[in-house]
Write a protein that binds this DNA or RNA. Structure first.
Lengths: 224, 224
DNA sequence: ACTCGTAGTTAGGATATACTAACTTTCAGC
DNA sequence: GCTGAAAGTTAGTATATCCTAACTACGAGT
């Protein structure tokens, strides 16, 4: 009660960011290479090498020279705690403070390092302990349990079928605004009416309206 | 809307803390000496010298070698922005998330550096744009306007008179818990029934109950 | 199995903080 | 106006990040 630490005991915000980046890269299969991590955090690859070794020293990651980096169980836990904080903050900002879903990522990116466990617990409770954030991403439980499901993307839906929008990345405000304008958000039903040849754009039906969406965009929307 | 910076453009959290410390020291008359700042921030005096020079280079403070440090108008503004964030966060945590008033200082100390102006504005609005925080401290307006009033302390109240509790420091959870147990919080009416000689403890009446409080404690409670 | 291009690392430096130890100023009181 | 304690500064380090430039290792394709 009196000793609420921000997160893992004494990890810097930066180190936390690395853990999260590595976790997310591992998640999407792209085993976390130095360049991948660097790209994700928008820093130079040379900077990654050192931090990754530090994380290894702390027992949070394992890295073989010239091979990739993997999180240890401890590292995974720490990453999931951070992700939990991030997603609860996002949800809270949308539900209790009227933020648009396209803005909350940036805000959460900063707050996730400063919020105590108690604050997170209270925010979560205030919005009914949700299991998904506003972009459809699952929120890890306080003990690190999480339901990472593999979802197909809208780009892979067969012409004529219908799907439910489940999830999209939270990182790009412009993109989220675009999706919102199309009516594409978690829970929306989408029917693919047509697909142009040579990997061309899709014609889709969302909430009665017919829309065109490019392959790149469709590939970033996950459905079931 | 899209470019909400945390505070002053590109000040580190540490620099912000120095500004706040200097502001608060100036406020209580104690013109901000190197040792005063060091004590407030719990760092070595030697560390202060460098930062103070940096703040001077940034146009936020003026410091003469071996004399004290004063904020410039720009520094004062930046400090007030930070204080505004701090006090709004404290108020929000108490009113909307059920925190006890004794815990919010610590939490706000971290969040104040991470919260965007938009978040602060939304929090403030959610709780009706209060003008005082839970400890009775005035909340600066967004433009830096503030009502710093000099208040007398409970230790100075004449025996037999009654006063309204206005304010106390937010920094010491134990002390706040103690005050709370006595029924002393902003708005409470207190009557001084007796004062022991030689600067001795006061007997006070709060909400019907009669209590004893030491001079040190009474000196930290401000009334009108 | 050789050879590049890509991925990754090391070397060397910069910035922001903080610390301790040693030195310098100031100023209050004789 | 001297002097010693308190206040403040400088010097030298340390850590955590980050960067650029230069070098090395790996592995895919001939």
């Amino acid at each position: 009660m009196s000793e609420q630490l921000p997160a893992s005991p004494a990890l810097t915000g930066q180190a936390e960011d690395y853990l999260k980046a590595i976790y997310e890269l591992e998640q999407r299969g792209t085993s976390a290479g130095t360049n991948d991590i660097a790209a994700r955090l928008r820093i130079a690859p040379a900077s990654v090498t050192g931090m990754v070794q530090r994380l290894a020293r702390l027992g949070l990651a394992e890295s073989e020279r010239y091979k990739g980096t993997r999180l240890t169980e401890a590292g995974r836990l720490a990453a999931l705690q951070l992700i939990r904080r991030h997603r609860i903050i996002e949800s809270y900002l949308v539900q209790r403070l009227g933020f648009g879903w396209e803005h909350v990522h940036e805000e959460a990116e900063r707050l996730e390092h400063a919020a105590s466990n108690e604050l997170i617990a209270r925010m979560a409770e205030s919005i009914g302990n949700p299991t998904e954030d506003p972009h459809g991403a699952p929120i890890p439980a306080a003990d690190g349990t999480i339901d990472e499901i593999h979802l197909e993307s809208l780009a892979d839906v067969a012409v004529g079928s219908e799907a439910t929008v489940m999830r999209m990345s939270d990182r790009d405000p412009e993109f989220l605004l675009y999706l919102d304008a199309l009516g594409i958000r978690p829970g929306a039903r989408v029917r693919v009416l047509a697909r142009e040849p040579f990997d061309g754009p899709l014609t889709i039906q969302v909430g009665g309206a017919s829309q065109i969406i490019g392959t790149n965009s469709a590939a970033r929307v996950f459905i079931r």
